[in-house]
Nucleic acid binder design. Structure first.
Lengths: 416, 416
DNA sequence: ATTTTTTTCTCGACAGTCGAGAAATTTAGT
DNA sequence: ACTAAATTTCTCGACTGTCGAGAAAAAAAT
């Protein structure tokens, strides 16, 4: 259904555009903003004075004039305009980061996660405690926290911050919004971890390729298997999705997965699955909860020495991944695939299987093998994805609600 | 990447909105348009007078006033504002339809397709001849044809009207744009047939459910297997895609498919595959080019009588479909599935397999079985999809280019 | 001191939407 | 027959938004 447009919408959109340009390129002068956005200088003036009144951006202090002419006045976001807390949930720890509106990291710590399965209630309490702690440490008032951006592996509700399924808590759902709501007024968003990796890679790619960028998939290999897809939208930025790839069906009635289903991709390509396969344990054995990476390293070493069974385990894993990716490509357009996560260290062993698995499908035979790259530093990408996403959400929120509100209160202060 | 907005864009958008409302609900009065669009009466006046000057809509002749008050003046699209040719390519015929801008069918005929494999060049020539013929028969000038909307089974390029792969011509690509370009100035669009079915069903659903509508998949069963997905977009209408579902990998190293690959879904669920399986022919036999439906009816009859082997063939087909659908659901959100096409007559035999195949995946076990409906009248839906899609494309084009151009020429005429 | 160059800011023109109320036109009531 | 009520369409002025042009500002070069 189409929806009506209005002139105010135009202003909103262009304001968000200005903020996003400012974010992407740092402090910019009037004319540069005009160049990047395509908006006229007059419009930039109007928008920036409005944003400045609303205390969202500020004129940078005079800097030594370089070159002739009237010196530029750089505009930048006000760092203290608002703050963002990033919560990254991984299998063994929860990392909390406090970030200012300009994207600068202010404080960070991790808390070990006890491996007791005592469940979601206790875990949520831990998260609440962690959030309080990071706020206390930095002496920032709670209202200044505009957004809490959370990520986890697993399946996430697309509209609300609800963790629908996770490797840790299974089907025990966690609704972060309601869990934090009485205490925190900030908006809460939740994203799949690999989705954020994909978003970060997509943003990088868009900077390089510009309008040529079409789509990209990120495949994260580790204890579990995640996939994120980012696609260039019609007009409004990027579209991202995090399918339930690790638990997509690889083979009917196949190996038993941690999730209780048989034949998931993860039941062949997750770390525990490779271990199980390398030790020739029956495929319907209930899989280990946690596998030390050192253990897998040993198997990889043997495989590299030419031992048949461990090599076969990696190959099977690769096949499951390749088949799964080929199925994804059958349902989407052709796109490059970036492989990240701790599993990349075994890419030499997985590669042949992945390529063979890909090659078994019609789409790949027709369009050719997709480009595959290995990308390290998954952690950095996750954080980068958080920032990209969270800050642009903040931008929108500020423009949507903030400008009028803050501006109104500013005028009251002036007149009062 | 975000892009700038302007006030003219607002007008364009709202003009398209008015046209689309007019199309959906037929002739409407001023106030009704205002209600449907949410735009104010004044704006409707401005837009409609502009569209009327540009000869895109017209005031309907006075009709008997019902109720008190000033009688309504109904507005409707001008039928002769432009025309549309719909070309539906199926395995045994090509159907040509001439439709006016109000969606009314003016002329239609089908041309048998000779089953010789002489290839794409000859086929394209046939299409050109068919287009000329329908134009001749109706005495409409070629410039009045604004759009040629083509559909086929197979895989279609997402940006250009290029048939990338089809059951008929295989990988022999057909670029309809360049094939028709010197002769026809009209815009050419090409869509997968099942995509149009999905689009039509989606549009129907949106009328019923309104904003509650999220997404829907259409599965077409026949000689080949097609899938169309329609999703509600962020803001601008619906997003539709036609994946290469029939040739998605069902089982590595599985049965030989018509496309030459092994293990495609179609190699289990296409008509020829069911036949092959029912006759216990080895799965690597090169499949029949064309299967008479009567043949399959016989097998179905036997299966319904309780014969094991034919029943098993249908069950295997269902399993392949169910597994494939479960994989699709792993990559998208949960959505209802509408099954169409000639294969629906065997749905009683396929059903158990489909449900079992779906149930083998984690996502279905977690979210529950998706809603499955059987929808007959695929042909009607295909045509309806063509119309929905083509006419809204025309609306956009008219507003984008037409209004200014036509208006300009109108003022010249006035002053001249 | 003047000119040149570069950047920012301001003004008037133009496009779009909206609310209110005038104008048009029919039905109902007396 | 005439008037009042109802309903729809149209018009006007206010408001918001963008843009181009040119004025104003401010530093470097001459």
């Amino acid at each position: 259904m189409l929806t009506k447009s209005s002139t105010e919408l135009v202003r909103q959109r262009n304001s968000v555009l200005v903020l996003s340009v400012l974010r992407r390129h740092g402090a910019l002068a009037h004319t540069e903003i005009s160049d990047f956005t395509g908006l006229s200088s007059a419009t930039i003036s109007a928008i920036t004075t409005e944003l400045e009144k609303a205390q969202i951006i500020e004129k940078s202090e005079q800097q030594p004039a370089s070159g002739r002419g009237r010196p530029r006045v750089l505009l930048r976001q006000r760092r203290d305009c608002g703050y963002l807390i990033v919560v990254i949930i991984s299998s063994d720890a929860v990392q909390y980061s406090l970030v200012d509106y300009a994207g600068k990291l202010i404080d960070r710590f991790s808390e070990e996660r006890s491996h007791d399965p005592s469940g979601a209630v206790r875990f949520v309490a831990g998260v609440r405690a962690g959030l309080s702690r990071i706020l206390d440490r930095s002496k920032i008032s709670q209202e200044k926290v505009l957004l809490i951006s959370i990520s986890s592996k697993g399946l996430v509700n697309s509209t609300e911050p609800v963790l629908v399924w996770s490797p840790i808590f299974g089907s025990e759902q966690i609704d972060f919004e309601s869990a934090l709501r009485p205490e925190w007024q900030a908006k809460v968003i939740l994203d799949n971890e690999t989705l954020l990796v994909a978003a970060a890679l997509g943003a990088r790619e868009e900077i390089v390729k510009g309008a040529d960028f079409r789509a990209l998939a990120a495949l994260s290999l580790g204890h579990s298997v995640g996939l994120g897809i980012v696609r260039r939208g019609n007009q409004t930025g990027q579209e991202i999705s995090a399918p339930n790839f690790g638990h997509m069906l690889h083979m009917a009635n196949g190996g038993l997965c941690r999730c209780g289903t048989r034949g998931c991709i993860e039941a062949y390509a997750g770390f525990y699955a490779i271990l199980r396969s390398a030790f020739e344990v029956p495929l319907d054995t209930i899989p280990a909860k946690f596998v030390p990476v050192a253990e897998l390293d040993k198997i990889a070493a043997k495989a590299r020495q030419g031992h048949r069974v461990p090599a076969f385990a990696f190959r099977q894993a690769g096949l499951a991944l390749g088949n799964g990716l080929s199925r994804m490509l059958s349902l989407t357009e052709r796109m490059p695939i970036a492989i990240t996560g701790p599993g990349t260290r075994y890419y030499d062993l997985l590669r042949q299987g992945i390529e063979e698995g890909l090659g078994q499908s019609h789409i790949v035979r027709m369009e050719g093998m997709p480009e595959i790259r290995v990308v390290a530093d998954e952690q950095i990408l996750v954080f980068e994805g958080h920032l990209n996403r969270a800050l642009s959400v903040i931008d929108e929120d500020i423009v949507l609600s903030g400008v009028q509100g803050i501006q109104a209160s500013a005028t009251i202060q002036e007149s009062g």
